Simulated assay, not measured.
Amino acid sequence: MKMNPWTLSVLLLLAGPLGADPDWHVEYPDSFCVVEGSTATIPCSFTHPAGHRVERVVWCTNQVFCNDITSTPNVYDSNVRADSRFQYLEDLVGNCTLKIIKTVKQDAATYLFRFETNYDNWAGRKGVVVNVTDGEVVKVRSSVTDHVVKEGGQVTLTCTSACSFHQLDVHWYRNGHALSETGPALHLSGLSNDDAGNYTCSLDSSGRNTSAPWCLVVVEDEGFHRSVHLKVAVVKGVVLAVLLLLLAGVVFAKWFSNKTKRI
């Protein structure tokens, strides 16, 4: 079967990406939103053929294949000391996550990941478009409509902004004091008066992007207290019953011992 050169060229062009080795792959989101001054983590994963050993990993910006360091230096290169604000969090096996610390306006760019093995190299073709925004109003939203929650109840507070927070570092504070919990959602359960106060969230530890306070008021729940008192009464009753049984056992043992001596 004969085929004209033009048709053959088109088929070869199409066969390139379609026939590419599926073992070579880089996966990350198409775009990413970051609030200026915050710390963000770009998720990334990669695969390569079995038997290959990764020897170098590179993250670059605004390049096609991450190999033109003369025009734009790489933000991370496992073989070269790079900007400490860009940290490679994972490994040389399959996770290529990149962390950007205290982002600035100049960090807005298209980020691309490239890795080299002992046989070949591969780069993620599309890249991640990172947008850096400023002036975002960070807010605390609540799972309850009112600020008042009964003792023993629960509430979930969420730190929100125009950017997606699934990969942003979020810090939580109560009355200005940092909490150990981090992440976009703060879950509070079994509430007591100690949990009451003003809650704020921030996108970084410096408090530059901090929300307005959300006030939580915890009120006494009579039903809750009746339940607690009932449980305490039951426990006291059980303890008393056990003590009476022990006392009765001691008395019986002493009586039986005396009776035996008389016989």
Rank of each mutant, 00 (worst) to 15 (best):
P5T: 11
W6E: 15
T7Y: 07
L12P: 12
L13E: 09
L14P: 15
L14K: 05
L14S: 14
G16I: 14
G16K: 13
D21C: 10
W24E: 06
W24V: 04
V26E: 13
E27Y: 12
S31G: 09
S31Y: 12
V35T: 05
T39N: 08
P43Q: 04
C44E: 11
S45E: 15
H48V: 02
H48S: 00
P49T: 02
A50G: 03
H52N: 02
E55R: 09
E55Y: 00
R56Y: 06
V58F: 06
V58Y: 04
C60R: 13
D68L: 04
D68M: 01
I69R: 08
I69C: 07
I69N: 12
S71G: 07
T72G: 06
S78G: 06
N79C: 06
S84N: 02
D91E: 10
D91Y: 09
V93E: 12
G94T: 09
I101W: 03
I101R: 13
V104C: 07
Q106Y: 01
E116D: 10
E116I: 09
N118A: 01
Y119C: 01
D120C: 09
K126D: 15
G127S: 05
V130S: 00
N131K: 14
T133A: 06
R141S: 14
V148W: 03
K150W: 03
E151F: 05
T160Q: 13
T160Y: 03
C163S: 10
L168V: 13
V170F: 07
E181F: 11
S189P: 00
S189K: 05
N193G: 09
D194E: 13
D194H: 02
N198C: 03
N209F: 07
A212L: 02
W214H: 14
L216V: 04
V219K: 12
G223Y: 07
F224L: 08
F224D: 05
H229K: 11
L230H: 12
K236Y: 05
G237L: 10
V238C: 15
L240M: 14
A241G: 15
V242W: 06
V242M: 09
L245P: 00
L246R: 11
V250Y: 09
W255H: 10
T260G: 14
I263R: 15
